[in-house]
Amino acid sequence: MREGEKDPGLYDFLPYRGRPKIEWPDGKKVAVWVSPNLEFYEIDPAANPYRKSWTKPHPDVVGYGHRDYANRVGHWRMADVMSKHGFPGSVSLSVALCQHVPEVVADANARGWEFFSHGIYNTRYSYGMDEAQERAIIEDSIRTVRDATGQTIKGWLAPALTHTTRTLDLIAEYGLSYTCDLYHDDQPTPIHVANGKLISMPYSLEVNDHYGFFVYNMSPRDYADTLIRQYERLAAEGDESGTVMCIPLHSYLIGQPHRIGPFEEVLRHIAQDGRAWITRSGDIADHFIGQGYDRLLADTAHQREDAR
């Protein structure tokens, strides 16, 4: 990014109207990916000078216990519902979960889920890191996931959404192909990086279960209705050009007994609809880079010419 400038220069402006058409496999209209955040929060983390972790003195029994529920209860309940309706996960992974609770990581891997990095712990933030430190957490992520699952990560969602000005350049340099940290679009788009090729994968804060339940204070049924509306609109617009819908989840929220039932109805709805390419983020990235990336770049270059 362009450090210190008003416009960070992350991407070119590209209006929704008149873009080159994105075609998903088998004529599907909307690529739907479900992103469980499989996380580990430390009970007594080191302090980052730019962001506090727990709001209460350690141990924050409710804050920590709520998140720990994910690995004891929520994951298993959520994962079974996803598998039942044919949804693989694209995991935003606190990679230290590979050490702490390898059972959860092995379960996700056995279900055919993809892993990308969400940092080491969700209680260790990137703010304030120098380049060597940031390289260390990227290298740690690549190595840890490879050792635990045999997979090579293709994507990045910054730990607790904490970034530096060099994160995007660095992950592209290490060969990652997508970032989930930018929320400017409903389709994948090329991202400016110093070297290599990086795209933005539409993730979502707006329909993230955390936002649904704790920012918008939705009831479980209201959240389910929100997801179905989001899906219906993006599937309809996908007639024009393929769209992306992400369902970002935290099993300590969606796996609660009052929420999982209404959520299952969402998966049933999408699975039965027929317009969805139910897939993983890495598969969307591979498909887009293989098919649409160069045409889109050419088109934005063309538009820049026009503007001039």
Partner: peptide, 12 residues
């Protein structure tokens, strides 16, 4: 900040 003394199998 980049050392993880309790990073091992089980709880921290």
């Amino acid at each position: 900040y980049l050392t993880y003394p309790r990073r091992a199998q089980g709880m921290d």
